Structures are given as C-alpha cells and as structure tokens.
Amino acid sequence: MSHWFPRRPRIVQDKLSARNSAQSGLALVVTLILLLVLMVMGAGIAYIASTQADLVAAVANKPVSIEAGETCFDNAIEWLDTSSGKSWVNGVGAPYDLASAGNPLSGKTILADTVPLGQTDSRSAKFKERAGRASYSSCIVEKLASTASLGIGNEVGTTNGYGLSTFTYTIRITAIGNFNVPLTGNKINKTFWQSNSSRSILEVVVSYTP
C-alpha cells in the first residue's frame, strides 16, 4: 500500500467538513431572508387592516356627526322663537355662537333632540351612550337680510287702515358636529383623538318669519 494512503481519509473529512459548514451558513442566510419577508408581509397586512378599519369607522360615524350638526339647526330655529331669539333677530343680528360656553345651546347633544314628541325615551342604554357622544361644538347664527311684506289694505283715500307689515329674515346657521371627539374648550384635543372620531361642518340658509 502506498505511503499516501493513511492521509486520504483526513483530506476527505476536511473537505466534507468545509462543505457542511458552507451549507449551514447558506441555510442561516435563507432563513433570515424568509423571516424578513414574513415580517414585511405581516406589517403590510396590519397596515391595510388598520386603514380599512378607519375607513369603515369613517363611513359608520360620519352620519352621526352630520346628525349632530343638523341638531344645531333644529335647536337654533327653536331658540329664535324665544324672547332672547326674537330680540336678536329684530336687532342687529350679528354673528352669535349659541353653542359657546355659557350660551343657550352649550353642551347640547343629539340625545334629547331625537326623542319623539310626547313619548318617553325607551331606547337602549347602548344607543343613549352613543348618542350622548354626538354633539355640536359650534352653532353660529347670523342675520343676512330682512324683507318686509305690507299687509293688504283698501284703496287709497277710502281708509287709513292697512294691514300689519310682516318681516321675513334670511338667516345663516353654521354648525360643527362632532362624534366621539374629545375637546378642550372648542378645540380638538389631539392627544385623545381616536381613529373612529368624526367631525362635520355644515351650513344652511333659512328664511324665518316670526
């Protein structure tokens, strides 16, 4: 037997060890790449799910904030029939925020405005809790114009008694309706803003005859 024969098993063993080490390193690299891909896919799925949840919340909650703004319109027209409302509309009629602190409509929600007339509120506690989080933070009334309509009278020269004149006022009402919006005063507190919060700005022009 050749004197080189005893060394051959060691050479083969060294080559096999080097090959196994290279394969182990490649498997580690492939595993890390796969983990990275899975992590990116998971982050993408989470982002899409969050975005879709916000869209669903916006669709579900936007009508509630719009309803809060429309409640402002109802309450403002009711206020015009009060003595203070008549004094305002018969006066200068300057812009007046009814919903600011200390004013007649401060802190109003849609809960009381949605109770049918002459009936007790028998709605569920969950509905009341949701409706109680829908309010308007601003309800500005402003008189734009007034027109007078003369009453019906007789032919001139036959009598001096004509009918009473009536006034029709053109009033603009601007409302900010909120649902689930934490406020500091009349400003949104962004620290506690939630993804299912909603805010709507509405404006309407009405003709009002006392």
Rank of each mutant, 00 (worst) to 15 (best):
W4I: 07
P9V: 10
I11W: 11
I11H: 08
V12P: 00
V12A: 15
Q13K: 05
Q13G: 15
K15V: 11
A18C: 12
R19L: 15
S21F: 01
Q23F: 06
Q23K: 08
Q23A: 14
S24W: 05
A27M: 08
L28E: 11
V29C: 10
V29G: 05
T31Y: 04
L32F: 11
I33L: 15
L34N: 12
L36F: 05
L38W: 02
M41D: 05
G44F: 03
I45H: 14
I45P: 01
A46W: 03
A49G: 03
Q52K: 09
Q52L: 13
L55C: 02
L55R: 08
A58M: 15
V59S: 14
N61S: 10
V64D: 02
V64L: 14
E67M: 12
A68F: 01
G69S: 04
T71A: 09
D74F: 09
L80G: 06
D81V: 08
T82V: 09
S83W: 01
K86E: 15
V89E: 05
V89F: 03
V89P: 01
N90R: 12
N90W: 04
G91A: 07
G93L: 10
G93R: 09
G93S: 09
G93W: 05
A94S: 15
A94C: 03
A94H: 05
P95L: 10
A101M: 07
A101I: 07
G102F: 06
N103C: 03
P104K: 11
S106M: 01
K108Q: 09
L111P: 00
A112C: 02
A112Y: 03
L117F: 12
Q119E: 15
Q119S: 15
T120K: 09
S122T: 09
R123G: 02
S124M: 02
A125G: 13
K126T: 13
K126D: 13
F127E: 15
R130T: 00
R133P: 01
S135M: 03
S138C: 06
S138G: 08
I140L: 09
I140T: 14
I140A: 06
V141W: 04
V141Y: 06
E142S: 13
E142V: 06
L144T: 08
A145P: 03
A145R: 09
A145S: 14
S146M: 12
S146I: 05
T147L: 09
T147E: 10
T147M: 07
A148P: 00
L150Q: 11
G151Q: 04
G153Q: 11
E155S: 12
V156E: 14
V156T: 11
T158S: 09
T158D: 04
T158E: 07
T159N: 04
T159L: 02
G161M: 04
G163W: 06
G163I: 04
L164H: 05
S165D: 08
S165H: 01
Y169K: 07
T170H: 07
T170V: 15
A175K: 07
I176P: 00
I176H: 03
N178P: 04
F179G: 08
P182R: 07
L183H: 00
L183T: 02
G185P: 04
G185W: 03
K187S: 11
K187M: 07
I188G: 00
K190E: 07
T191C: 04
T191Q: 10
F192N: 13
W193L: 15
Q194N: 01
N196E: 08
S198M: 04
S198C: 08
R199N: 01
R199L: 03
I201W: 04
L202K: 14
V204R: 14
V204G: 10
V204N: 11
V206A: 12
T209D: 04
P210D: 09
